[in-house]
Simulated assay, not measured.
Amino acid sequence: MKSTCVIIPCFNEESRLDVDAFLTFDAFEILLVNDGSEDYTKWILHDLAIKNRRISNLQLDKNVGKAEAIRQGVLFLKGKFETIGYLDADLSTSLQEMERLIEIHKTSTYKIVMGSRLKIAGSQINRYWWRHFSGRLIATVIDSIFLKAGIYDTQCGAKIINGKTAQELFKTPFETKWLFDVELLLRLKKSSKNNSLNELVKEVPLSRWVDDGDSRISFKDVLKLPLSFYKIYKRYL
């Protein structure tokens, strides 16, 4: 069984994909998933897979959203990796930071190790204030109602998961597109009845995280939050 593969969903990324970063990195396997892009993303990913032997690509015919694109990536890997991760295409969390999370996961018994955009002394967390404020508000609601585990940042797009666990957690489609990270944690909690989330999940403050300002979360998505919360509550609680 191979070691680690990090899945990166890509939708219309031709203007912000850091090609050089991908071409020069070889610490772990990367699966780039083209989520039905309408620009030249498809061809960029294809070219990266040719030039870097540690990169492969999966082409989806239509846009299915981040949650389903990652799920399709997990299914595509067919349990061949001991560890599976996922990461945002803009590399706001760098590939080097992911390597650090992977090493932490390898030396622990946690099922999931997740990055956290917690601004502490020595860290470089550059995030627009309104996104930080809205993110904290949503995270507080999520943890107080659904998780109750003191998790600071469910929505950080950098997570490392035990391979077998990932196959189980991503087996079926998610109810929501944007809050699927919350569903993932609730699925983990349900599958491990004798363990609390604090025993299964470790949050690691990131050393560096850069907000590129190009949020894929629209105002329409924000308006759908109450419905998303309801769907999660109905299915998991």
Rank of each mutant, 00 (worst) to 15 (best):
V33T: 05
N34R: 06
S37P: 05
S37T: 02
K42T: 13
I44V: 10
L48T: 05
A49M: 07
A49G: 11
I50F: 09
I50P: 00
I50V: 12
K51V: 00
N52V: 03
R53F: 02
R53Y: 03
S56E: 12
S56G: 09
N57H: 14
N57W: 13
L58H: 10
L58M: 13
Q59V: 14
Q59D: 15
Q59H: 15
L60F: 05
D61T: 09
D61L: 13
N63W: 07
N63T: 13
V64A: 05
G65Y: 10
G65D: 12
G65R: 04
A67C: 10
E68L: 13
E68C: 07
A69R: 06
A69I: 04
I70W: 03
I70R: 14
Q72A: 08
G73A: 09
K78S: 14
G79T: 11
K80T: 09
K80E: 14
F81V: 08
E82Q: 15
T83R: 15
I84T: 09
I84M: 11
I84W: 08
I84Y: 13
I84R: 02
I84D: 07
G85S: 04
G85E: 04
G85H: 04
L87C: 11
A89E: 06
D90R: 03
D90L: 01
D90P: 02
D90W: 02
L91M: 12
S92R: 15
T93K: 03
S94L: 09
L95P: 07
L95H: 09
Q96A: 14
E97F: 04
E97C: 01
E99K: 13
E99T: 13
E99S: 14
E99W: 03
R100Y: 08
R100G: 01
L101R: 06
L101M: 03
L101P: 03
L101Y: 02
I102D: 02
E103H: 12
I104R: 11
K106F: 02
T107H: 13
T109Y: 00
V113Y: 02
M114T: 11
M114Q: 14
G115T: 08
S116G: 11
S116F: 04
S116T: 15
R117C: 04
R117I: 05
R117H: 05
R117A: 10
R117G: 04
I120P: 00
G122P: 06
S123D: 03
Q124Y: 07
I125M: 08
I125C: 09
N126F: 06
N126V: 15
Y128D: 10
Y128L: 12
W129V: 09
R131L: 04
G135P: 04
R136C: 13
L137F: 14
L137K: 07
A139I: 00
T140P: 00
D143R: 07
D143E: 06
S144D: 08
I145N: 03
F146M: 11
K148F: 06
K148G: 10
K148W: 07
A149T: 10
G150I: 07
I151L: 15
I151R: 01
Y152S: 06
Y152K: 12
